[in-house]
Amino acid sequence: MSKREKLPLKKMQLRKVVPLWIYLLFLLVPIYWLVNMSFKTNTEILGGLTLFPQDFTVANYRVIFTDESWYSGYINSLYYVCLNTVISLSVALPAAYAFSRYRFLGDKHLFFWLLTNRMAPPAVFLLPFFQLYSSIGLFDTHIAVALAHCLFNVPLAVWILEGFMSGVPKEIDETAYIDGYSFPKFFGKIFIPLIGSGIGVTAFFCFMFSWVELLLARTLTSVNAKPIAAVMTRTVSASGIDWGVLAAAGVLTILPGMLVIWFVRNHVVKGFALGRV
């Protein structure tokens, strides 16, 4: 009896696992190719197709780590991304609390208005942004990019956090107030630790969307705060494209993201499980 039931189960498992593996493979192969190319010399890249670097080299990476204009791109990007994550979280936390606990005048319309900013294409705001930040003297600074990215990250952060906060029973707030906690004390000491994983997930998404955005970051900077994504266009020169360095730079842009996933992986699982992203 038990054997007969187990057999179809195994078949089922196989039918489930194979498509999943194919999909994961589909995700990984292009990345494998990029990593593969980053360790090749340009002669090998252009000479023919090799599945593994025959002439293993780290010269491409050395170019990036020794040339200031290259590695400063990474520093600039990381700087404004972190700045943006901090700003987004600190303003979104109280707002999300308000949305999850209170009804107030115009709350639904405000929420919708916030979301439309997440939906608006950056291309629409490109020109006025450029002029706005030039006129207040912030052009080509990290804070300008961080503020501009708030346009889509703050609404997203409010949206995600609101979902997490609605999951916290309201009785906790009431008990704390009866025990004589003031709002700031309650918020910092009791409430924030309760939604720790929600904050982790939100930080992850803010980091992600700020890190991957190029159009605004490129428009608002020229030299001092130039993001890595814009620096990468340098590999195209009159003598053709320096494929090896381009691939190495690409690999290095993937790494920070992977580090962040590694740190928040448990929170992300939990966060997804809570049903709001």
Binding site: L24, L27, M208, I228, A229, M232, G250, I254
Partner: peptide, 12 residues
């Protein structure tokens, strides 16, 4: 693994 593509800058 599934999150990796989401975290790659769009131009990359």
């Amino acid at each position: 693994v599934m999150t990796i593509p989401l975290l790659i800058p769009w131009n990359v």
